[in-house]
Amino acid sequence: MIVITLTKVPPALRGDLTKWCQEIQTGVYVGHLNARIRDYLWERIITSIGRGEATMVYSAKGELGYEFRTTRRDYQVTDYDGIPLMTHLKVAPGTPQPGFSNAAKFRRAKIMANRNLNKQVPPTESPVVTLDLETTGLNLLKDQIIAIGAVKRTLTGEIATFERFIKPARVVPQSITDLTGITTEQLRERGLDLKVALEQLQTFVGDYPIVGYHFGFDENFLRQACQQNGLASLTNKMVDLQPIVQRVELFLDNYRLATVLKKYGIKNQRPHNALADAQATWQLADHLIKNGDFRI
Rank of each mutant, 00 (worst) to 15 (best):
T136W: 00
L261G: 09
L141W: 12
M56H: 08
S233H: 04
G191S: 12
Q97E: 01
A54N: 09
D293F: 13
G212Q: 01
I24K: 14
L222H: 00
H272G: 14
I37N: 08
A197S: 07
E125A: 07
E63K: 14
H88Q: 15
I145K: 00
P93G: 04
K237E: 05
R14S: 13
N139C: 10
K195W: 05
M112K: 14
T259P: 12
A197N: 05
Q76P: 02
A12P: 06
I24W: 09
H214W: 11
I148A: 02
R164T: 00
Q224I: 02
G181T: 06
G82V: 12
T95Q: 03
Q120P: 03
Y66F: 15
F221T: 03
D240P: 09
P123W: 09
I2A: 06
T7P: 12
E163R: 00
I148M: 05
P96T: 01
I210L: 06
D74W: 00
V30N: 10
A160H: 12
D207C: 01
L140H: 02
A232R: 01
D253W: 05
L284R: 06
G94V: 01
T7R: 15
L133M: 02
N34C: 08
Y80P: 03
Q97V: 03
V196C: 10
K8R: 15
L117P: 03
G206T: 02
T154W: 07
Q76G: 01
Q25V: 07
Q200M: 06
D286M: 08
K110V: 02
Q227E: 06
L64F: 07
T135K: 03
